[in-house]
């Protein structure tokens, strides 16, 4: 019987401080054992439990894409006991990863469709994974138009700045980067909240256009009416939820919304599905 609580041992290969407040770091991990890497088959939108020995575990969305081989990436906000300790760790340190967990974005449905990605703040991690996945030369022909609306409080709070800049230059993805307020006189992108930019830039709804939203509750609250106005039906609005988790495999009982577990049945749900469950997230 395989023990789902036993993490794969990994080494921290690289640490990047992403944001100006230094609260967000991206950790790149390599597996200590080749066979673990081969067993770890994931899809964009899934998450893992990062295990810091002696401190505990945290559920974090996978920021790397399955098309990037040889490592895993996670962007972690410094919040509690485990994440704060993780922020003090160094390249070369050994820890563990359990996963991959949860469903993923519905890639079988999204193939052949227009995809609108709407992200805010540090919830952009699994969206980065999705963009890298879709832009992979093998995968790009499988998708029609890709729009990305991504906002942060300030330019310095945007994640993955170099990649954002490189995607800006491409003609097979339409980037709409925005900040709530720019303190940088050379800021050349949008200024305004995500819902406002969505209203201006998101393509009109049709049966072949799906929106993926990931962000803080306040952003979701104000973006949803905009998508309604644009005519997006609720089964075309895809959301990724977060709840407190421990086991990550649907057993410990805390992350449920009604009868669904966010860790196992989610974290990705369509708004149509969420409309039928208690709003306990």
């Amino acid at each position: 019987m395989q023990n789902p609580y036993l993490p794969y041992p990994v080494r921290i290969a690289e640490i990047i401080t992403e944001t100006e407040d230094k609260n967000l770091k991206t950790f790149k991990f390599t597996f200590l054992k080749k066979e673990d890497e081969e067993n770890f088959k994931y899809r964009s939108g899934q998450f893992s439990e990062l295990s810091v020995t002696g401190k505990g575990e945290i559920p974090i969305g996978i920021a790397s894409s399955p098309t990037e081989k040889g490592f895993l990436k996670f962007t972690v906000n410094k919040v509690g006991l485990v994440s704060s300790h993780l922020h003090t760790m160094k390249v070369g340190d050994i820890m563990g990863i359990r996963g991959p967990m949860g469903n993923s974005y519905p890639w079988d449905i999204l193939e052949g469709k227009n995809v609108v990605i709407i992200g805010g703040g540090f919830a952009f991690t699994t969206l980065r994974s999705s963009i890298i996945y879709m832009l992979n030369p093998e995968n790009r022909p499988k998708f029609k138009e890709i729009n990305v609306i991504y906002g942060a409080r300030t330019p310095g709070m945007l994640l993955y700045k170099e990649e954002l800049a490189s995607w800006e230059k491409r003609d097979d993805i339409k980037m709409h980067i925005t900040v709530d307020a720019a303190n940088d006189p050379n800021w050349k992108y949008n200024v305004g909240f995500v819902p406002t930019i969505t209203e201006k830039k998101a393509p009109p709804a049709d049966k072949d256009t799906y929106a993926i939203i990931c962000g803080p509750p306040i952003m979701i609250k104000f973006t949803q009416p905009v998508l309604d106005k644009l005519g997006y039906t609720h089964d075309h609005i895809i959301m990724s939820l977060e709840n407190r988790m421990k086991c990550g495999i649907g057993m410990c009982g805390r992350c449920n919304i009604g009868k669904e577990f966010v860790c196992k049945d989610g974290p990705v749900f369509t708004l149509a599905e969420l409309n039928k469950t208690p709003k306990e997230y």
């Binding site: 919040v79 994440s83 509750p217 805390r254 306990e280």
Partner: peptide, 19 residues
């Protein structure tokens, strides 16, 4: 053992608590 009767059971790192 844990209990769904305790507020810590579902408390998010951000302070938000769905229950």
């Amino acid at each position: 053992w844990d209990s769904c009767m305790f507020p810590l059971f579902t408390l998010h790192g951000t302070g938000h608590n769905p229950r």
